[in-house]
Simulated scan of single mutants.
Amino acid sequence: MLRYTLLFFLCFTMVHASLLSQENPLKIGVAGLTHTHVHWILGREDIGDIEIVGIAEPNRDLAQRYSEQHGFSMDLVYDSLEEMLAATQPEAVTAFGTIYDHLGVVQTCAPKGIHVMVEKPLAVSMDHAKKMKALAEKHNIHLLTNYETTWYPTNHKAKAILDEGKIGEVRKVIVRDGHKGPAKLGINQEFLDWLLDPKDNGGGAITDFGCYGANLMTWLLQGKRPNTVTAVTQQLQAENNPKVDDDATILLTYDTAQAIIEASWNWPIGRKDMEIYGLTGAVYADNRNQFRIRIAEGYDGFSEEKMELPERESPLNDPFSLLAAVVQGKLQLAPYDLSSLENNMIVMEILDAARESARKGKTITLKK
C-alpha cells in the first residue's frame, strides 16, 4: 500500500511541476526603446504569459520618460544588450530599436539560445536577413517578425474565405498601408531620427509600409514568390523626408495573379486595408474589424454581406502571447505564417527587388 501511495505522490508531483512550468511567464528582454511600437509591450495588460526582466537602452532620458509613463522600475534598464542579457537571462528578446540593429540583436542573442522577435520588417536588406536566418538555424532559435496587421481578424477572415474557394481563385490583391507621414504625426525625435534615415530604416515608405503587402501576399499565396517586381517611388514631402522616399507603389506578378502594394506617408487618413478579387467575388478587409464580401451577379451586380468581426482568441490576438506560446512549445506556426522566418525572407527579397526597381526604373525578374 505504501508503495502505491509513494508512486501516486511521485506521479502527482511530476504532473504538478510540469503544469507549473508551463504556466510560468516567458522571461522577455527588451532591446531598445526608440521604436514607438515598444509601447505595445510596455503598456500591455499583465495577463501572466510574459514578464519583462530587463531593458537595454543607453538613452537614460528616454528610458526615464517611458518609466514614468508605464510604471516600470529604472532598475530594469541597462546600457547595453550584452549587460542586460548577462544580468537577467531572458528566454526571448523583443527588438525595438532601428531596423539596422536587428542583425546585431540576433548576433548577440542567437549564440546564447535566446529567441528573438523583431518589429517589421525583418531586416534592412536581404544581406542582413540571410545572416540572421543562418544564425537562427545554427543556434536553433525562433526568429519572428511582428506586424500590426497580423492581429487583424479581417485579414484572417479574408484568407479563410479565399482558402474555402468562396470567391474563386485569386486574381488581384490590393494592399494599402500608411498615414500622413512621421513628421506630420509628431512622433518623438528618438524615433524620427532613424525612421527617416535610409541606413537605419532601409528606406522610407517603401520599407515602412511596403513590407505589409509583401507579407500578406506571401501568406495568402502560401509561400509563392512573385515572378517580377516593379516599383515606383516619389518624394512628395522633401521638406519632411529629405533622405528617403515617402510614397511607393509596388507591383508583383505571379503566374495567375497580381498584387498592387500602395505604401505611403501621404495618405490624409491613416489606413491598413486589403482587397482580394477572385473569379466569382471579392472580399474587403476595410480595417481591423470591419469586413465585406461581395459575390458577383451579372455584369456589375453583386450581393454583399457586411460583418463586424470580434478579436481573435489568445494567443492569436497578440504578438507577445504568440511569442510565449511558440517558445514554450504550445503552438507551432503554420508554413509561411505571417510571423514566420520563411515568409519574411520572401518579404525581404521583394523589398530588395522593389528598391532596385525604383532606383533603376525597370522591372526586376526574380531568379527561380
Rank of each mutant, 00 (worst) to 15 (best):
M1I: 11
R3L: 13
L6G: 03
F12S: 09
P25R: 12
A31V: 05
H37C: 12
H37L: 14
R60P: 01
Y66R: 08
Y66E: 01
S67I: 09
G71V: 11
D75A: 14
Y78A: 00
E82Y: 15
A92N: 05
V93E: 05
D101K: 11
Q107Y: 10
V118W: 04
E119L: 10
K120Q: 11
P121Y: 13
P121Q: 14
A123Q: 02
V124R: 09
A129S: 12
I141W: 05
T150S: 15
Y152N: 02
E164D: 13
E164G: 05
I174E: 08
A183D: 04
K184N: 06
N188T: 10
K199Q: 04
N201I: 07
G204H: 02
D208E: 12
G210M: 10
G210L: 11
Y212L: 02
L220S: 02
L221M: 14
V229E: 12
A238E: 13
K243T: 05
K243S: 10
V244Y: 07
T249W: 00
I269Y: 07
L279P: 00
G281D: 02
Y284C: 04
Y284P: 01
L309S: 09
A325F: 05
V327D: 06
K330V: 06
L333A: 06
Y336F: 15
L338V: 15
S340L: 13
E356P: 02
G361T: 03
G361P: 03
